[in-house]
Amino acid sequence: MKSLELFAGAGGLGIGLHDAGFRPVNVIEWDSYCCDTIRENKARGLHAVKNWKVTQGDVRKVDFKPYNGKIQLVSGGPPCQPFSLGGKHGAYDDVRDMFPQAIRAVRETRPQAFVFENVKGLTRNSFRNYFEYVRLQLEHPDIKAKRGEDWANHFARLEQHHTSGNRAGLNYRVVTQLVNAADHGIPQKRERVFFVGFREDLAVSWHFPLATHSQDALIWDQLHGDYWDRHQIARKFRLCPKGSDRVSKQDKPSERPWRTTRDALFGLPDPEFEHENSAIILNHRFQSGARSYKGHTGSPLDEPAKTLKAGVHGVPGGENMLLRPDGSVRYFTVRESARLQTFPDDFLFHGSWGETMRQLGNAVPVDLARVVGESVAEHLPRTAA
């Protein structure tokens, strides 16, 4: 199935959708470092990206009309700084808001479906109206803003159109969902909002994939399962997990356990003390200077990692760290961070440590993209768009 990938970043969403069966006719990204990362992996023959056509440039200058009727899916993660909890919170007053371009791509290409991802901050009460505005535009992309019309008046027209029952033109059935990646097997507590839409004429009935992993299942595994034995941890170093009082041995959860940082890093040598072994692994080099301070305490080994951040203060504010059981901290290497984002181990990131961590902090976890993509693909006709 053919797709169009916007705001591709380092390729997390695109690789996951590739694994789900989608093949992009174009991959568009303005950031040169991200494009270099994808191009370098193309040159290395990495399966998921080797046939990608990469367009580096401003998406606002791209004409999407030639793709009309030729693709099944439009996907992407519109830049999230306008909505990020760590950003300036500009939303619709922020020139970096690229949702208008995502909506234009849907309007001009008329895909069977779309998948867009953004930060949890978009669901905050202060942005609620804009969240609904985005959703209504995706439901009715033909109802364009008039020249000089502000977003509030356009929003009012969309509401009026939506409640009128008029289904003329291009319409989509849209599902929005706030998702914790850990609930889908990603070793990271990463909350993101998804917009998934199906063209109305397809009459698709769809729901977001149900959670397959849970915190309670992890607690049960650490209390009564083989978690510690699997990792060969001596009894004196085994921790009692938070929330252990709510999980009994008799009531084993049906879900699989959340994957932890220790699970994700399994098999990787410690870059701080095993230099020779670490040197032969892609992007696995120790980065000095980590320190713990209020609000930046690192990720415990035996829980899913905290959200990897791209950040604007230093290198993600110093939070992308491993917290060892003895209380010491060190930065995650690029490879460790890639594991937390479920990138394949042979995927090489281009640029300095800080630059690659920015790429990773902005990425969609590959396996989460695959889970969503597989579910979407199952509901699309295997015919021309």
Rank of each mutant, 00 (worst) to 15 (best):
K146V: 02
Y227R: 01
D229Y: 00
P209N: 08
V134E: 07
H207Q: 14
G86N: 11
G90Y: 11
H213E: 04
G86L: 13
F155E: 02
V179R: 02
H224Y: 15
K189A: 11
Q177S: 15
R147E: 13
W220G: 00
Q188E: 12
W228K: 00
P111W: 06
M98H: 15
H140D: 04
G86C: 05
M98G: 11
V196H: 01
G87D: 02
P187M: 10
H89Y: 06
G169R: 09
P100Q: 07
P187T: 07
F155D: 10
D94Q: 09
D229C: 00
A168G: 14
Y227E: 00
S126Y: 08
H140K: 06
T176M: 09
K88L: 13
N171M: 08
D93F: 10
E108Y: 04
Y92T: 04
H154K: 03
R190N: 12
A217S: 14
A156Q: 11
P111F: 07
A211M: 04
P209L: 06
T109D: 07
W151H: 05
P141T: 09
F116I: 07
A181E: 01
G148E: 04
L178P: 08
W206M: 08
S126C: 12
F99H: 08
T212V: 02
Q215D: 03
R190E: 06
F114E: 12
A152I: 13
R157E: 09
F116K: 06
W220D: 01
Q222G: 00
Q137F: 02
L136S: 03
R124Q: 14
Q232M: 02
A91I: 06
H140N: 06
R190T: 13
A181H: 04
A181K: 03
R104H: 10
K189G: 03
Q215N: 09
T123E: 03
A102I: 04
R135Y: 05
A182E: 07
G197T: 08
E117K: 04
D97M: 07
R128H: 15
R167S: 07
Y133K: 06
F198R: 04
Q177M: 03
Q177K: 15
K88N: 10
V95E: 13
S214N: 10
D93S: 12
Q160S: 13
E132Q: 12
H207L: 05
A102C: 05
G148S: 11
P187Y: 09
H154C: 06
R135P: 01
N129Y: 02
Q137R: 15
H140R: 10
I219F: 00
G185C: 06
Q188T: 09
H207T: 13
D229G: 06
A105Q: 08
L85C: 08
G121T: 15
D97K: 04
K120T: 15
A181W: 04
Q112T: 07
V179H: 03
A203V: 05
D216Y: 02
D201E: 14
V115A: 13
E159Q: 15
A203I: 01
Q101M: 07
H184Q: 10
P187W: 05
R192G: 12
Y92S: 08
R190A: 06
N180V: 10
N171W: 11
A91N: 06
S205Q: 13
G197C: 06
Q188R: 11
L138V: 07
D229N: 13
D150W: 09
R190L: 11
P187C: 09
K146W: 13
R110H: 12
P141S: 04
W220C: 01
T123P: 00
L202K: 10
